[in-house]
Design a protein around this nucleic acid. Sequence first.
DNA 1: CGCATATTTCGACTACTATCAAACTATGAA
DNA 2: TTCATAGTTTGATAGTAGTCGAAATATGCG
Lengths: 123, 123
Amino acid sequence: MKPKPAIASLSALAHEGRLEVFRLLIKAGADGLPAGEIARRLEVPPSSLSANLNLLSHAGLVQSRREGRSIIYTADYGAMSRLIGFLLEDCCAGSPEVCAPLSVILDRAACCASEEAATLETV
Amino acid sequence: MKPKPAIASLSALAHEGRLEVFRLLIKAGADGLPAGEIARRLEVPPSSLSANLNLLSHAGLVQSRREGRSIIYTADYGAMSRLIGFLLEDCCAGSPEVCAPLSVILDRAACCASEEAATLETV
DNA sequence: CGCATATTTCGACTACTATCAAACTATGAA
DNA sequence: TTCATAGTTTGATAGTAGTCGAAATATGCG
């Protein structure tokens, strides 16, 4: 990942409302959520939400598909993984001081599902 | 780490000039670099740099100390680690799709120095 | 078609962010 | 104390980002 798109992703997440949207979509998993449902849950006007979803989408952090009258948004896990990969490798030069404390988190996540992830080619 | 400070850190890094400053300070290591040296290397006017260093400092990503007439800036590795920890745990709920592809990077970093990091209490 | 629903786009407004020259403050050396 | 150096603060300005009501667009249903 290059700096420019990394900055776009960082800006997209550096906003309380958008961060909440992204967190909600991560929780929603692969099924995602329709825009209206997101607006209802987070209590934001549809037009504001639409602007923010558009920003997240341009940053590549979320994807969308139409389903009938609804537009379903999903979090793009690969994009997030690439962003964190950028922060670790390019930004922090793989510095052990940054990386080492994080292995605990990764080990915890890896124990649940390591097979499927090994086949992903994200970073 | 809570969302508010995480957003402050994300905003701080979501800027080409500041991201370059942070990368430079990571490369400089624990010795850090004086403000003037940073300005010279990145070819930015001192007042602009000062404003950006101030923002990074308020986000907790860099620290500073005076040494004679110079003010030396250093990257705060712990803060960066906490930020990435937030993105992995709170934001992505430790999702394997995000975490798994990153273990390669961490393993690469861990092989160099795992002892010293184990004593850090950052996340 | 005609109508209701889901979402986006437009437009106007406000508020914040970035930049940088010039003035100011702090430190060290003569 | 006086001068030079290192850096910050101030202030003016330009540009950008965020918000949200109202209008427009897309879809499905009867």
